[in-house]
């Protein structure tokens, strides 16, 4: 099935990524590969401990050519920015492409929850959204990926064989709504080569 579906980045506006705490390395490799003139916005839920401070932002910012920041209430989403959900807050996308936070109950034992970001982003961006699930140890993101697909977006899961924690990508794949199953390097190639 791989590579039969062509991914043309020009057709998209936003990428959402779900990854759990252990995915720091995978995620930073992916984010660092994005060139400074990358045309899409990137919004990320990483499951971090609620007391995590801004150190992870510094860590990513050091490695990336794109601007990495924590999402703020009512912030307008800009192309080429990378936004992280703040620890202990859910992050949602409004239809007018602004970001909002919520401290609702945990979903899938998680706050921020991947599902909450993905579902709201799917509503806002419809077929202009790419959803990516990387390494992780629970099934947060399944419902989100299903809805991204349902609204016409594009879905990618990291190949569980190479993922540090295969549960999350495997669980997303098992929903039957994943367009491409790729290794990290293949994801990077897709995103960058297709764009160039």
């Amino acid at each position: 099935m791989m590579h039969q579906i062509k991914l043309n980045l020009k057709e998209f506006k936003c990428i959402v990524i779900g990854v759990s705490a252990g995915g720091m390395e995978a995620l930073s490799k992916l984010l660092a590969s994005l060139p400074a003139d990358f045309p899409l916005s990137v919004i990320i839920v990483q499951h971090l401990h609620k007391t995590s401070t801004g150190y992870y932002l510094e860590y990513y910012n050091e490695k990336c050519s794109l601007f990495v920041k924590e999402a703020e209430q009512n912030e307008t989403i800009k192309a080429g920015n990378i936004y992280f959900a703040p620890p202990d807050y859910h992050l949602l996308v409004e239809d007018n492409e602004t970001l909002i936070l919520s401290s609702d109950e945990k979903v899938n034992y998680s706050r921020p929850s991947i599902d909450i970001l993905f579902e709201s982003a799917a509503d806002a961006y419809r077929e202009k959204l790419i959803g990516i699930i990387l390494t992780g140890a629970n099934n947060d993101g399944d419902e989100g990926m299903r809805i991204i697909k349902q609204k016409g977006g594009f879905t990618i899961a990291q190949n569980p064989l190479e993922a540090e924690f295969p549960v999350m990508p495997q669980s997303a794949i098992d929903t039957g709504t994943i367009d491409l199953i790729l290794t990290l390097n293949e994801i990077i190639n897709e995103l960058i080569k297709r764009y160039k």
Binding site: L92, V93, E94, I100, S120
Partner: peptide
């Protein structure tokens, strides 16, 4: 109310 959270609820 902020729409996206409300919709979810």
């Amino acid at each position: 109310y902020a729409r996206a959270s409300l919709k979810r609820r």
